Simulated assay, not measured.
Amino acid sequence: MKLSPHFSLAELTNSTTAQRLGLDNTPAPELLPRLVLAAEMLERIRTVLGVPITVTSGYRAPAVNRAVGGVTSSDHTQGHAVDIIAPGYGTPYLVASLLAPLVSTLGIGQLILEGVKGKQWVHVSTRSPEKFANRIITITDAGARTGIQVLS
């Protein structure tokens, strides 16, 4: 099922962790409109980047979210969030740096540059956090910092 011209439900629900552990990662029907909004946000991001986007994590059923070590309040479990990379554009730092001044224009509620356990990606959500300071942040093994920071 296509959610937008370039993103499908299968792509936004694919989980190697769910497959490996035999967990169901099917979203409830009431979450589909949120996944459509997430796909539409990804389309806008794709247009700005000018290259394809790879979804590394989208919707996560609660059991899948626990298995990957996600926080219980994760936007992934509600169909709001997607983790992406865009190798054709550059590093996650470069992607996040381009997107940061455009979050409102692109309909990004939260932008997180993540560099944890040797991996890097960009987390985008359609839902804005309660604390405005958490709207654009960088998370590393050392903790969270406001804004997009250079990753080591």
Rank of each mutant, 00 (worst) to 15 (best):
T26M: 05
I53N: 02
P92W: 08
S125R: 02
T126S: 11
T138R: 03
A100F: 13
Y59S: 01
A61Q: 07
T16V: 14
S125K: 07
V122M: 11
R145P: 00
A18F: 03
G79T: 07
T105H: 12
Q110Y: 12
L113K: 10
L102N: 03
G118I: 14
I137T: 14
K117E: 13
P33I: 07
A142T: 06
A61H: 15
H80S: 02
R34K: 10
K117M: 12
Q120E: 15
P33K: 13
G90N: 06
L42N: 07
P129R: 04
G88Y: 15
V116W: 03
T13M: 09
L99T: 03
V122N: 09
S73Q: 05
I45A: 11
G115S: 15
I84W: 04
R46S: 11
L49N: 09
V48I: 12
A96V: 09
A18S: 01
T77K: 06
V64N: 04
E11W: 01
K119P: 00
R60W: 03
G90H: 11
T13D: 09
R44S: 14
V150A: 15
R34W: 00
G79Y: 01
R20C: 02
R44F: 12
G115M: 11
V116I: 13
S74V: 00
K119E: 12
Y93M: 09
S15V: 01
G147I: 01
T16W: 14
H123E: 03
